[in-house]
């Protein structure tokens, strides 16, 4: 049996549990919708604009930085696992890799991508 089969089962069962817990309440819970109740929370006032407006670009920058750094991290894992096999060559390569990463990191820092002001 593939070791991934239990994982698939686990995913399915977790999903089922979520779905069941949501749907089972439909039988027992009351349902009395009214207009005010169905409005979005805005400190008790009637909402006055759509929420989906433009927000700080900082979030995007963080997202991009994450994507880059996370992918770089992914490279570290196989290397770490195979560390004994790749030897000094792998070590040097990865040091170079990290140095390059650090350059990028400090660049982002200096450019203020990490500031939140």
């Amino acid at each position: 049996m593939s070791p991934y089969l239990p994982i698939a089962l686990m995913l399915i069962i977790s999903a089922l549990i979520g779905v069941i817990t949501i749907s089972v309440g439909v039988i027992v819970r009351p349902n009395k919708p009214e207009k005010v109740k169905l409005s979005v929370y805005e400190c008790g006032m009637p909402e006055f604009s759509d929420a989906r407006k433009r927000y700080s670009v900082k979030f995007y920058i963080i997202a991009m930085l994450f994507v880059i750094f996370d992918v770089e991290t992914v490279f570290l894992f196989p290397w770490a696992v195979a560390f004994d096999l790749v030897g000094i060559f792998g070590l040097v390569e990865m040091i170079i890799f990290i140095i390059i990463l650090v350059f990028g990191y400090f660049y982002a820092w200096r450019k203020g991508a990490l500031e939140w002001a």
Binding site: V57, Y60, A63, M64, V67, I68, D70, V71, V74, F75
Partner: peptide, 20 residues
């Protein structure tokens, strides 16, 4: 695959920036 994913990440970063 790891390379492709890496590239896809970089592409995402650049592409979204361009779209913005």
């Amino acid at each position: 695959i790891v390379f492709v994913m890496c590239v896809a990440a970089a592409e995402a970063a650049v592409g979204l920036a361009l779209i913005i």
